[in-house]
Nucleic acid binder design. Structure first.
Lengths: 243, 243
DNA sequence: CGGCGCGTTGATTACTGTCAAACGGTGTGG
DNA sequence: CCACACCGTTTGACAGTAATCAACGCGCCG
């Protein structure tokens, strides 16, 4: 990994706790294969048994699962610094695909190297484990959103989540960010039809809390948006709490 | 932990990989406080910062999150052998409550002891990490269910999940099992109103694949139920795949 | 007996999906 | 340069799904 690429992972892990120089070196020493993907392309296939784990370096990716009737559900959106399928190191078979949401770049790190790291570095292991637990907390928030929130709340919650996470990795410019999915993809995230996504989006825009055009989202009034969507960022564990 | 209680955890972990005698001893040596709960009682409160992790020994528990309007969403159902809030060891603050679904018994294990275990036993750490990853895979399946499945499929999927997991821990008698939640609680699991749960349940019963009365579920035709609900148990990682 | 919790049913309302059509931008070939 | 196809967005009409409201039955327990 070069400086740019490793910095995302190191920042990600340091967000939660300090790394020693030795730990930082161990991460920098990880081999990584960089690859680029066009929107909609598959980074990792469902039911595959990857030999590498995939770290997003630029752009967005998503976890997607396909149903018999051709429908699709996205269960997470990933941003730079996210180890999308770190779990594949232990679970072996992918229960979902990973697809590019807009053009993206990813680093693929061999499981073997990661595994050796976990055998020799308990503290790093705990930090990696921690990232997968935050990931699970995000999934729980999606379950609540899908199960009990209005369409507008769901969409607002998603935007708040992304806004907050993107700001934590420092890729927010001012109060706006690029978000490239089509409305059909957003429907797959929120469990809605494309048409209804469009109408919900129109409602959301009419509140004035959010502007969203040409794949660019601007959070005009975060406070009210968060209140409306019952978004409380604590579950993202973005503050520092060393162990 | 006495023999009965520890056996669930050991079985749980050994389901995935063999434990050495030393590892088994280390688990048996863990201190545990046993507690019993009545249906609906809270084992762990939302927003609390537990000092112990909670292992279900008997009965069912669920993760629940509450919304401003008083609604509730359950994001997971737990059975004997499940470490419901192992993540609280690393995440510190609970993003959900844990409630009893029917009467249940749980062992509370201090975080400090678990943490020391992870510092000295990389292999056990990996197995514990693994259980949290399976947990996350189950949550992904719930997301797909909530987002894209019909009410009948959702209910069928939940029953298949429970049937399969319960069989893995050996608490299925024949083809049926006790499942004590009220229809209101089931609504909180599936994101439905109580009335609609009742009507969906009637539809499901009319297929003949399932019988469900007096808190007892009987899986009459698992094959067809699984097909109807697009249930594929591979994501539960119940087979053995040592690392 | 009477209240309460839970399950069940029917009527009504609200939400969301499907179908269909039109609009605008973009890239390609003639 | 224009015509055209393609993709994504937007809009309206309609159908199906699910929530809400209300009432009733049943068993349990004080």
């Amino acid at each position: 990994m070069n400086k740019d690429e490793r910095s995302f992972l190191i920042n990600m892990l340091e967000r939660h706790d300090n790394l020693s120089d030795e730990e930082r070196q161990a991460i920098i020493a990880l081999p990584a294969r960089m690859r680029s993907f066009a929107s909609g392309e598959e980074l990792v296939a469902e039911d595959s048994r990857p030999e590498e784990a995939c770290l997003i370096v630029e752009g967005f990716a998503a976890r997607a699962q396909y149903l018999a009737n051709g429908k699709r559900q996205i269960s997470a959106v990933h941003i730079p610094g996210d180890f999308v399928d770190l779990h594949s190191m232990l679970l072996k078979t992918m229960d979902h695909a990973v697809i590019a949401v807009g053009p993206c770049r990813a680093a693929f790190v061999p499981h073997g190297n990661l595994r050796r790291l976990t055998e020799t570095h308990p503290h790093l292991t705990r930090l990696l484990w921690h990232t997968t637990l935050v990931d699970a907390a995000i999934q729980r928030a999606w379950i609540v959103s899908l199960g009990r929130m209005s369409a507008e709340q769901q969409m607002g919650h998603l935007l708040c989540e992304l806004y907050t996470r993107l700001r934590a990795v420092g890729v927010i410019e001012g109060d706006s960010f690029d978000f490239p999915p089509t409305q059909a993809m957003i429907g797959d995230m929120l469990g809605m039809s494309t048409v209804y996504v469009n109408k919900t989006l129109a409602n959301l825009r009419s509140t004035g809390y959010v502007e969203w055009q040409d794949r660019r989202v601007r959070i005009v009034d975060y406070e009210r948006l968060a209140e409306m969507a019952e978004f409380d960022p604590r579950y993202l564990n973005l503050w520092r709490e060393p162990r």
